[in-house]
């Protein structure tokens, strides 16, 4: 009967693990709802500011913002990688990092220099481990991504772009498709591509006459502000999407872990019962054998 006690202990420990994973699953489920909510709430701002930016790119002729100008030579690239702060969320971070690494490898093969901005602990840990050139970071954003925390890191990248340190900026994050599916994506952030601007304009058939805004105080500073806010809004959106993805990936991963624990418990229980039965049979046959011998 030595084996049966061990099996029993094992069952107990797996049950404890299952309790933890189940609790984490439920926590993730409730956080996921909030994260999705936040993601949806962030959308109107993104759309509105895109509208304004699109109007501006059409209307204005006196000043063209550097974010809108495509550069001929691309020598240096800035990338922003959005990952989660915590692990235990399946292949979420791995997928996005793999996409980033493959892309970085291709870029470096072409002789381009890369600087990285990390949003999220996991990406930072990975990037510093492999020796990438990380120039700015934000970690520990918590459950509600805070615009104030993002501004600094984003500014480093935007300044780098306006000061000609980068010729292009890309962002990597997990796009939230649904609870079961998240997709790692790479998007070009700067210069702002035309498709991005045009996206909002369909069904908006205003005459394309040459008109311009009245700017207060003056065009340049107002346009600069709008552009910076626009890019920030894009990044904020990427962060909220990534967070919704994180929570749903964690929920799915933890559900799988709980299910696995369940099947392990079933198997162990079977082994335990078998060994118990074997012991009883053995004892019985010993008694019967003993009685027959008398």
């Amino acid at each position: 009967m030595a084996g049966s006690r061990e099996v029993r202990n094992k069952i107990k420990s797996v049950k404890n693990t299952q309790k933890i994973t189940r609790a984490m699953e439920m926590v993730a489920a409730s956080k996921m709802r909030k994260a999705q909510d936040r993601m949806k709430k962030a959308r109107p701002y993104g759309e509105k500011i895109r509208n304004v930016a699109a109007h501006m790119s059409r209307a204005n002729t006196e000043y063209r913002h550097p974010f809108l100008i495509e550069r001929d030579t691309v020598k240096r690239i800035g990338i922003i990688i959005v990952t989660s702060d915590k692990g235990l969320c399946g292949g979420l971070n791995t997928n996005v990092l793999r996409k980033a690494i493959n892309q970085m490898k291709a870029w470096q093969a072409e002789g381009e220099q890369i600087e990285v901005c990390c949003i999220g602990n996991k990406g930072l840990g990975f990037m510093s481990r492999i020796g990438a050139n990380v120039t700015s970071q934000v970690i520990g954003l918590g459950d509600a991504p805070d615009m104030t925390r993002l501004i600094g890191a984003v500014k480093v990248v935007l300044d780098g772009y306006t000061q000609d340190q980068f010729d292009r900026v890309y962002v990597f994050y997990n796009r939230f498709i649904n609870t079961m599916k998240q997709e790692p994506v790479m998007e070009q952030l700067l210069p702002l591509t035309d498709e991005r601007m045009q996206k909002e304009e369909q069904g908006n058939d205003k005459p394309k006459a040459s008109w311009d805004y009245i700017y207060e105080p003056e065009a340049k500073s107002v346009i600069d502000d709008i552009m910076v806010r626009y890019v920030e809004a894009l990044i904020y959106q990427a962060v909220t999407e990534n967070m919704a993805s994180e929570q749903s990936a964690r929920m799915v991963a933890m559900k799988a872990a709980s299910d696995n624990a369940g099947s392990v418990i079933d198997e162990l229980t079977l082994i335990y019962n078998k060994s118990r039965q074997a012991a009883i049979t053995k004892e019985l046959s010993e008694i019967v054998g003993g009685a027959a011998a008398v």
Partner: peptide, 10 residues
């Protein structure tokens, strides 16, 4: 100030 902080942390 925020951007300097983000840089320094990195």
């Amino acid at each position: 100030a925020k951007s300097i902080e983000a840089k320094r942390a990195a």
